[in-house]
Nucleic acid binder design. Sequence first.
DNA 1: GGCATCCTTCCGCACAACGGAAGTGTGGTC
DNA 2: GACCACACTTCCGTTGTGCGGAAGGATGCC
Lengths: 247, 247
Amino acid sequence: MGGRSTVTARVLDVLGAFTADTPQLTLTEISRRTALPLTTAHRLVGELAAWGALERADDGRYGVGLRLWEVGALAPRGLGLRDAAMPYLEDLHEVTRHNVQLAVLDDVEVVYVERLAARDAVSILTRAGSRMPLHATAVGLVLLAFADPDLQERVLAAPLRRFTPMTLCDPDEVRRMLGEVRRTGVAISDRQIELVSQSIGAPVRGPSGEVVAALSIVVPAEGNPHAYVPAVRTAARGIGRALARSN
Amino acid sequence: MGGRSTVTARVLDVLGAFTADTPQLTLTEISRRTALPLTTAHRLVGELAAWGALERADDGRYGVGLRLWEVGALAPRGLGLRDAAMPYLEDLHEVTRHNVQLAVLDDVEVVYVERLAARDAVSILTRAGSRMPLHATAVGLVLLAFADPDLQERVLAAPLRRFTPMTLCDPDEVRRMLGEVRRTGVAISDRQIELVSQSIGAPVRGPSGEVVAALSIVVPAEGNPHAYVPAVRTAARGIGRALARSN
DNA sequence: GGCATCCTTCCGCACAACGGAAGTGTGGTC
DNA sequence: GACCACACTTCCGTTGTGCGGAAGGATGCC
């Protein structure tokens, strides 16, 4: 948004107008969201659609096109990681039948790269491509715990969003938690996102030992989280090894 | 690439320069592929990277960024379909342990939307986001068989690429095959892509009965393909129902 | 040192993008 | 049937933004 307006920025603004909540937009809606004059939006959208970056549905609304999806699938952190991780996610999911998630750090947020949902799952709090803050989820805590200290302070300096009464919103509490995560190598987020669930996360390490992603499993609040720790840890290590193998 | 040069087209050309074979490119390479002067490529790439559409690796090369991956993940045919299909793909994969693939039609090609690989799979002929011609793979034959007759003729009029001695490259042979696919509701591609494998495909139908995607399983050449037909068919129907449920 | 490759910054000119105005097409209301 | 509201499309003259040549680092190799 804003500032200096280069054509490229406008094009990207148009793409950015599409969100998980509203993946289909009318031209007027795009124009409103990007603050571009209708005429301009019309031209840009037309060019994007001609290339396949956007697609026009039968009802006239625009959505993201397959071509853009293809290009996006080339994102190294998205695809390479996903390929390596998939078998392990499947195993974990197959055995436990709970939601399993893989996420990476991007700026000050968690981005979910993959998620295997319980068959009958209704709640779609997260899906591949969605973002969450770092302080409340198990994957977030893992990624934050092993992140650059500068980033940690930056995140803790900003207001920490409350999801439930259990969410840790005090920087010092979070700091203590991060220490524990570093010590144990596992993060447990107990009802910090929803009161009905807790999640157990572990770091996925790249060839040189740095944390490149985090894996988590979401289980009902009443279960004993520690029961899942070995499985999650094993899966995370397996992914790390698979990554190293695939260079 | 082509003809008239609008800025948008240039931006998209830059994105299009990234392919599955070479997901990481140096600036000079991008400039060469897009036929843009180095200076221009530099500016565009800079703007794209600032937004997060591209990311710069440690070695200075550029790759597709997470942000673009996120937007791409919103593609309705990519994500909605994938969400509905995943459980069924997993089941099929779990039971058979063979490669399972989900694909949609885009223009005159198949685009793979998801693929669950056998754990020890070495050959990565296809991956999520890759394209294949319509006449040789099981998913391709399914999609072509139920496609617009105009499209069928357009595809058959063009030269049909040969992958193995088994590939059907004669338009009439393919036409006969398509008829069979329509009659039986299943496509079998016997060693038409690789001599070591065959694939069995079935159509996934949307709420109004039209074919929106195709599902296939890849098995060793020596097996009996018909043994897999019921499982593939059931999975494809299941995905169709899941799609209808999710609107 | 000299050469090759790759990347980055600068800046004046030209042409492509901009966006106001006007036109088309649909659906709703009285 | 006349009117309005809304969403989209086309046209075209003006202007400001992107263009890309030239020159300046940075790094590596012989």
